[in-house]
Design a binder for these strands. Sequence first.
DNA 1: TTTAGCACTCGTTTTAATTGAGTGCTAATA
DNA 2: TATTAGCACTCAATTAAAACGAGTGCTAAA
Lengths: 345, 345
Amino acid sequence: MEMDERKKKILQAIIQDYITSAEPVGSRTIARKYNLGVSAATIRNEMFDLEMLGFLEQPHTSAGRVPSARGYRFYVDCLLQPTEISNEEKKIVQGWFQDKMSDVDQIFQSTAKVLSRITHNVTLVMASRQMTSKLKYIRFLPLDDHRAIMIVVTDTGQIENCIYSKPVSATLDDLNLIAEKLTHYLSGIPMSDISMQMIDKLHESIVDDVELYRVAFRSLTKSFHKQQLYKGGTMELLNKPEFKDVDKAKNLFTLLEEQDMVANLLMSDEGAHNKKVSVRIGDEANLSSINDCSIIEATFSDDNVVLGKIAVLGPTRMEYAKIIGLLDFMKQHLQYILEHYHDNQ
Amino acid sequence: MEMDERKKKILQAIIQDYITSAEPVGSRTIARKYNLGVSAATIRNEMFDLEMLGFLEQPHTSAGRVPSARGYRFYVDCLLQPTEISNEEKKIVQGWFQDKMSDVDQIFQSTAKVLSRITHNVTLVMASRQMTSKLKYIRFLPLDDHRAIMIVVTDTGQIENCIYSKPVSATLDDLNLIAEKLTHYLSGIPMSDISMQMIDKLHESIVDDVELYRVAFRSLTKSFHKQQLYKGGTMELLNKPEFKDVDKAKNLFTLLEEQDMVANLLMSDEGAHNKKVSVRIGDEANLSSINDCSIIEATFSDDNVVLGKIAVLGPTRMEYAKIIGLLDFMKQHLQYILEHYHDNQ
DNA sequence: TTTAGCACTCGTTTTAATTGAGTGCTAATA
DNA sequence: TATTAGCACTCAATTAAAACGAGTGCTAAA
């Protein structure tokens, strides 16, 4: 059995209807609302076929059909056409950002908020600090005998500090000599590219105690490795009929409270880099507690350097077309903002 | 009509029963479970009186009685005896903190988590940075022509940085001279005591541009003014029968997502400072969206300097005795930890 | 191949009946 | 006078039965 044009049209109609109604949709509804030029009986027959193909499911004998995960997958891959975000919405988004630019943190916070407002779903924004900037310089400040403060400044105005454990013998001047050298070698390099391996390259140029460098490197990578996570619209879930059973919602809430879990979830999308916007449906995310959910995500970057991710998480019944379009726009807008962030300061 | 001994006993029994059962409690139940030496009929009469006094309410004619806000208030003020936290629980709490001390942030995070685990309610921890430490030194680092980075280090190892807008004419050396002077005058002073007014005191000793100092002060107070807020156990709410109606929960969730709202709520407790642990019941918190909730809170401090607050928020039906005892212990434990934080580093 | 028609299914809604926890009142009792 | 046993009454909650209706699958005719 093949997917002919008519089957596609019917599947599309069913999915679109179900996305807005959240109710199993029957042949009659399709025949009436979407005039496909065939009768309900014909549609009924086609629906039977679509069920055989695994695209539809029936909650019980005398109910309408509901799209299966596979059905959504087919819809996303072959049927759907991303909706261009409307000019009006564009303006809303842009307006939202206009006056909330006081720091990078707030940009991401706003991103999460505005996305959840528009999509009525949970929004996740993940930004790894290491990715968003290039090293400007490193400096040490005193703390006590065996520790110093290491300050790392990037070109985007991000300032990180961390405690640096040092041998008592090392003076602050010693450390700042190291800082100077490191700054010399590393300035202008994206934080994401700074890894422990680089120390080997530098090895020959270093005459003094390598261990001190090693510790500095470790602090450097560690402090910028932090994944910052922003959430929005968590309680939008409670408006969804699929979560009117509180226990189902509880699972998801519990998951969302675990930063690590969420971070892993976002990191685990293998197909993400190839596409503009990636969609994982149902168990494709490989996480049992969100089996009935989908994640739509986009990666934002600068010159091929991945800066972070924006994602929308909700029940599989989701406005894929709209959200995909929105994320695509948002990703570009975010990239634009981050790129021009320095100028606008 | 007066509250005699028997009425008190009956009220206490009803409240305790309701706290665990969440069901309206009837005269029969009281007579059977708590042997007060009188019959159900007598209790019935007393309950009628208690209702007249405003301590009890009846959901409908043929239901048992439920404590009113006023009933809880009387219970908290006159009847309840704070439960000493058990040794076992003490150990759990202490164990929890043992290995999670890597920074102040994590201490508060853990506090929120462990409290919510024990109380099965929402826990809020508010710590104002300004309050938790004394100034150690100030230093400036370069950023660009019209801005510098101001680094503030406190004795507890907290490091704050902020952007300092400077006249182009001011060199980094100029600024660091200022930093030195400020450090000289302010080191050892609790961050909470540093206010814009102090600049007047310093006025006479300052010969150079006062405006530069003023800006530094402003940055200083601003960056340490941030109220950090930690939450725990949000979704414990969903387990409470009073929130099985999702819409009620939604209100509260929405509130909890608004940092400012929550901060204000915690700040608005006027009676808090007088008591060890303060309780606000129902509308005593003056916030309509939590009319059916109570807040139990304790202030933790060091040498009379307020450091922050820990609070438990939940439905008015709450284990007051236990939570009050717990918060009292936790507050002391937290004070202890913060006091010894520096040594253990 | 399409479709009208019809019997059948099964969750949902409606209605009615039953149950039972709890009360208030009264009259007897200590 | 305070207490209590007893009883009629109330009313939400539970259970049972009935009616409904959206939707299907199948068949036979177009």
